[in-house]
Design a protein around this nucleic acid. Sequence first.
DNA 1: TCAGGTGATACCCGGAAGGCATCATGTTTA
DNA 2: TAAACATGATGCCTTCCGGGTATCACCTGA
Lengths: 295, 295
Amino acid sequence: MFTFDQLAGFIAVAEELHFGRAAERLNMTQPPLSRQIQKLEKIIGTELLERDNRKVQLTPAGEAFMEEAKRLMALANRAPVTARRIATGRSGHLRVGFTAASGFSILGPLLEEISEIIPDVDIDLQELVTGEQIQGLLTGGLDLGLARPPFDRDVFDSHLLYKESMMLAVPSGHHLADLARPIGDSDISDEPLIMHSPTKATYFYDLVVRMFPIQHANVIHTVSQILTMVSLVAARRGVAFVPHSATLLAIKGVEFLPLAGMESEQPVELHAIWNRKVVNPALRRLLQDLEFRTE
Amino acid sequence: MFTFDQLAGFIAVAEELHFGRAAERLNMTQPPLSRQIQKLEKIIGTELLERDNRKVQLTPAGEAFMEEAKRLMALANRAPVTARRIATGRSGHLRVGFTAASGFSILGPLLEEISEIIPDVDIDLQELVTGEQIQGLLTGGLDLGLARPPFDRDVFDSHLLYKESMMLAVPSGHHLADLARPIGDSDISDEPLIMHSPTKATYFYDLVVRMFPIQHANVIHTVSQILTMVSLVAARRGVAFVPHSATLLAIKGVEFLPLAGMESEQPVELHAIWNRKVVNPALRRLLQDLEFRTE
DNA sequence: TCAGGTGATACCCGGAAGGCATCATGTTTA
DNA sequence: TAAACATGATGCCTTCCGGGTATCACCTGA
């Protein structure tokens, strides 16, 4: 196999059509350059340059080889740059998981911020529930998650992105909408309830049962997605506890009412979480520039 | 700059994910391979492989560099082959000039033969009169010509491709067509003549005036292209001397009559000609395989 | 705790590549 | 026409790079 030095030598001579000047350009003397070319021709197995004592010119094979040589050099020069860009997180891939609810609010602005910090990184977005995100982060199928507690703090590092209050979603014209005050526990003791799934939406389920005295007899639907809840409310099936960001869903026939005791408290949390053993350089760079730290 | 050995080493390790096996594959021992990779990483400026004492795996930068490395190796392996193919005339370019008349007859079969001998060579065809072909062969703009004498035998080598007789082209239903014998000098002494241009079609002009006693008063058109002649004959403007191959032109309203004294003689010659200083390897190979020799 | 496996390091040696001096040859000039 | 010049090739020397052998350092699993 020939060497890059031989290629560079050949290119220089082919461009200068003069061994002396080519050698000067390469910061070397003429004799080793002559031998370099000879050796290259021997390796290739054919004459590349035709030279008499007066002038040098390319053979047809030399012209063809010239193109390949230039392409090789260009590729060889680019390869380390590409590798470094990826190693420093300036290029590459980032796989981000997000919960459906986070898509309403924080996802847009966050992506904008991300693409400012690492513009040449491809972002793969996947809507996944918190459990699936954790699984992905563990197996390496995901680099970053936008998820809700709980998660294993030994394995995952995280950053609190967002806190919000809960609201009560009611059908338009519902009698509770006429009250000029936040909704209290007693107001909903007789309302049909659309509740979160205790298995698939553990976070919201636990949050709601901790904060409100739920009459389980009133629960008429159990769903896992906020969007489904709001749709059911719009269909006048009942009322539902939803995070404040659900108000951003412009669903007709739904009103969102404040809940008593929620004025100051914002119990719904959304975290960015990632495996402490970060291997993706793009993520490393992102975390650094976003100044995410362990909480 | 890194070396091809380093690239090959990196590829082997990246594929085996094991220094020992990779070294074996490369017919070397493990220690120099380790150093090779270290040196490569230093040159690239980033880690390509993550290795502890138990396992080896690619970093994201390493994966990206792997692609580039493979492409480089593939290109490097192909380049000499390409160069050799061109040097031995198995690939490359061949620029062929031909006269319009030769296009009727010999060009098709000749191209077929050429593409059997040098199938991977691109053939550039240009219709040119003999003078232009000679110019092209001198300046290097043309590799091979299909032309008519005379040309400088010191500069050009040639091979007689084709000899043919002259015919008389007459309009359909012309009274000469009724003669059951070859046309003699006296038969055309009163016919309007479409003649070759003495400057642009010297060869035919000289040939015709040498063989027939032309009444210059009868010449009503002077043209340089055979096709034009035949078209004018079809338009009943007069009669014309054309090479036998013109009969291959299926032009309606024209008949071709034999000329007296032409039965055995075939004075119209077409030669393949080329510069004795052949530089194009594809041409060299072609001439060799066609067994063209100096006449 | 020890044996086995794996990558890194130390040291040595041969060959390849570069520099200098010079040659061979063809062209220009006096 | 001969001498000076230009240019690529060759001979010889030295340096340095890269590979081999032996060995180390470290982790893992029995």
